[in-house]
């Protein structure tokens, strides 16, 4: 995640508070999804931006995860995301982001 985007997220947390935010990722691969999910939770694992060693602990999902799809209008979802859902490795991406969430909740306990 580039430093500019990381700063935008920090600013949003400052403005709205972390409990009022959910990050929805649109990254096209499981690897990129995991890095982005880590960045907004335990900190930027690539140490490239302002979120390095910053634990924002935000709630994070990927647009291709079932929980997100179920929360949105099916027609609009199909129009905007349908092609990506068809062409990307949806189960692997979902598993990558769910894996980061699970690791954090485990850490929290």
């Amino acid at each position: 995640m580039d430093p500019h985007t990381q700063q935008t997220i920090i600013d949003a947390v400052g403005k709205h508070g972390r409990d009022n935010l959910i990050v929805v990722l649109g990254t096209p691969s499981p690897e990129a999804a995991a890095i982005a999910a880590e960045t907004v939770t335990i900190g930027d694992p690539t140490y490239a931006g302002p979120l390095a060693e910053t634990r924002l602990g935000l709630t994070v999902y990927h647009i291709l995860e079932e929980q997100v799809r179920a929360a949105l209008d099916p027609a609009i979802y199909d129009q905007q995301v349908g092609l990506m859902a068809e062409s990307l490795d949806m189960p692997a991406i979902a598993a990558a982001v769910a894996g980061v969430r699970a690791a954090i909740s485990h850490e929290g306990k």
Binding site: G82, L83, M84, E86, S87, L88
Partner: peptide
């Protein structure tokens, strides 16, 4: 893959 998915859709 996106082009192919267009074909499927």
């Amino acid at each position: 893959r996106m082009l192919a998915a267009m074909g499927v859709r």
